[in-house]
């Protein structure tokens, strides 16, 4: 049966993430950040992206939602956390590699009385980071790493609580960082952070906290040998409703929104790079 020709001008955006070319167009328009969550399977990468969006749907935000070129993709991500999915417990869909390279979610957020910032959140499968850690692939297969403005290395709080799996958490992050950093794939201007996810499972678990504190200090020192200002965030993105502590999401969001330290916002024009300022990175090489 012959295909019916469809005029693309009559179509509304579907539930796809952006490819690098589309993301590059956004970055050329106004200030933006390319964010990469680096972590193994089920460490909470997609949940962080999803919660950045879902929290804007609740009252009392300090940032304002200014739109999304991937609104339906964010909605599809949020679906397993909603009653409309038929679930009682909030879940996050596992990310698979997109064959077309559509792996960037877009969320425009604006501070009070300020222009929006385009956050481009790389939604990459944890399996790729496992392969990178194990040297089964190289950073060439994750080109977005070289273009990251902010790279957050995720420590899986759920695995830290389990004595059988905790040993590999810090070790895995260390190996991942080495794999990214060793062959110069990491842009020296990329800002780093350590994000401990699912902190609500750790907090109050004294033995786990004691185990983790020393390793967190070691990892932080290693990150700061690359990025001296690398922060640490302890995040409970989906803490129970009665969780009595700050969930860390605001501090994390503020870090994402903060201008890249040596970049000028808005982007400087091509070839005009004032001394000491860095030209914003491009997702698509010229």
């Amino acid at each position: 049966m012959p295909f019916e020709e469809v005029d693309s001008a009559t179509l509304l955006p579907g539930p796809d993430a952006l490819d690098p070319l589309e993301a590059g167009h956004l970055l050329a328009r106004r200030p933006g950040r390319v964010i990469v969550w680096a972590g193994e399977r089920e460490s909470g990468k997609t949940t962080l992206s999803c919660e950045l969006y879902e929290r804007q749907r609740k009252p009392g935000n300090h940032l304002r939602f200014a739109g999304s070129e991937t609104l339906l993709a964010l909605e599809r991500l949020a679906h397993p956390s909603r009653a409309s999915s038929g679930r009682r417990v909030r879940e996050t869909r596992r990310t698979e590699r997109d064959p077309d390279g559509r792996e960037l979610l877009h969320l425009a957020l604006a501070p009070p009385s300020a222009q929006p910032v385009d956050l481009l959140l790389a939604d990459l499968p944890g399996e790729m980071f496992r392969q990178l850690r194990d040297h089964e692939i190289t950073t060439a297969e994750l080109p977005v790493l070289a273009r990251a403005d902010k790279l957050a290395l995720l420590a899986d709080g759920a695995r830290l609580v389990d004595p059988n799996t905790r040993a590999n958490v810090a070790s895995g992050i260390r190996q991942l960082l080495q794999a990214i950093h060793a062959n110069g794939a990491l842009d020296p201007r990329t800002e780093l952070a350590l994000v401990v996810t699912m902190w609500d499972r750790i907090a109050g678990h004294q033995e786990t906290e004691e185990y983790w504190v020393a390793r967190e200090q070691q990892l932080t020192a290693e990150l700061r040998s690359i990025d001296p200002q690398a922060p640490v965030f302890r995040v409970a993105a989906r803490a129970p409703a009665d969780w009595p502590h700050p969930d860390g999401m605001r501090a994390l969001t503020d870090w994402l929104m903060h201008p890249v330290r040596v970049t000028m916002d808005p982007p400087v024009a091509d070839g005009v790079i004032p001394g000491g300022l860095r030209q914003p990175k491009r997702l698509v090489p010229r």
Binding site: R82, S85, T92, R94
Partner: peptide
């Protein structure tokens, strides 16, 4: 509505007995 409110929303309307696991398909596809 968040997932936690499913039973409240389905009160008396044959709520599903078991929740699927994290890796299982959503009962209602997006």
């Amino acid at each position: 509505h968040p997932a936690e409110e499913l039973d409240l929303l389905l009160a008396g309307e044959n709520p599903p007995q078991l929740d699927p696991g994290p890796a299982e398909e959503d009962p209602v596809p997006w």
